[in-house]
């Protein structure tokens, strides 16, 4: 059990009902911006935990966490994103009702956390709330998507990189709905999402079989299937500067991405009578992975 302390200036009262959990993987360069933004994102001080999947790389993560009065959770092995979030969530006190799960290369805009909490508390059926996520240059990232069906999933996988605006990708990304409009979604990007703690705990947290990628698709799908709503609330905004911790390892990330896609589809289409569907998807994903890797190598 790690100690839990206030991650803010003394002017803000600790709210033991709210926690912010992030995962570092050599993320020292971006973590300070994140921790700083947390303190302006809410009128109250949440419990903050930094889980560290790479605690021996000298990134100064522990010191940064201490500076911002966040708890530091070094992990002996790299548990992946979902695994690290689960490990951190397991240390939270029972008082926590909402967990903001966030990448460390995210910057919360002032009031963003308060806005997400207000939306989450407006309906007991809301299991997760996601903000508008913009890139550093202001473009809105499609963070509130539908759960991929066979049709949209295959179309998106085949054409997303070669046919901009293909109908399957547009459907998957919910492009027809204006990004400034609040709505229910199939899943919300795990780059920054507020999750109802009791629902998260009841589902066993993120599926740790996803090392990276698709753990958020899977969580949103399971929340929705259980009966919870995943709500996109663009009144709250965060800036996501990008996948900083994976850029140096792209080949492996392509492989991990496809492995996760395979795992999600196998879970979604799990009935024994769907084995032909799983077999075809498996072959398709293997081919796609090889093609994407070759293109990347060239």
């Amino acid at each position: 059990m790690i100690g839990l302390v206030m991650a803010s200036s003394p002017a803000r009262a600790l709210d033991p009902r709210v926690a912010v959990v992030t995962v570092s993987y050599g993320s020292g360069a971006v973590l300070e911006g994140f921790l700083h933004s947390v303190s302006a994102a809410s009128t109250v001080a949440p419990i903050v935990i930094v889980a560290d999947n790479k605690p021996h790389d000298g990134a100064g993560v522990a010191a940064l966490a201490a500076r911002y009065q966040a708890s530091y959770l070094p992990l002996d092995t790299n548990l992946g994103y979902g695994g690290a979030i689960n490990a951190a969530a397991a240390t939270l006190p029972a008082s926590v009702e909402w967990i903001l799960v966030s990448n460390p290369d995210v910057c919360l805009m002032p009031g963003a956390l308060d806005g997400l909490l207000a939306t989450g508390n407006s309906d007991v059926r809301i299991g997760s709330v996601g903000p508008a996520i913009t890139t550093s240059d202001g473009a809105v990232y499609p963070s509130a998507r539908v759960v991929p069906s066979l049709r949209t999933g295959i179309g998106h996988a085949l054409f997303a990189n070669i046919w901009i605006g293909n109908p399957w990708t547009r459907a998957y990304r919910n492009d027809a709905v204006p990004s400034e409009k609040s709505r229910d979604a199939g899943w919300l990007s795990g780059a920054c999402v507020l999750v109802r703690r009791s629902a998260f705990a009841a589902l066993g947290g993120f599926d740790e079989g996803f090392f990276m990628y698709f753990e958020d698709v899977d969580l949103g799908y399971r929340l929705g299937k259980l009966g919870y709503r995943n709500v996109y609330d663009p009144a709250a905004t965060v800036i996501h500067s990008g996948a900083h911790s994976t850029t140096g390892d792209s080949d492996r990330m392509i492989e991990v991405h496809h492995h996760s896609a395979r795992r999600f589809l196998s879970k979604k289409y799990s009935g024994w009578w769907l084995w032909p569907v799983r077999a075809i998807l498996n072959v398709g994903l293997n081919v796609r992975s090889a093609v994407v890797r070759r293109r990347h190598d060239h």
């Binding site: 059926r125 299991g127 009791s198 629902a199 705990a201 009841a202 589902l203 066993g204 399971r222 299937k225 259980l226 009966g227 919870y228």
Partner: peptide, 8 residues
Amino acid sequence: LENLAAVA
């Protein structure tokens, strides 16, 4: 709904 998480 958490009562049904086991069958989600």
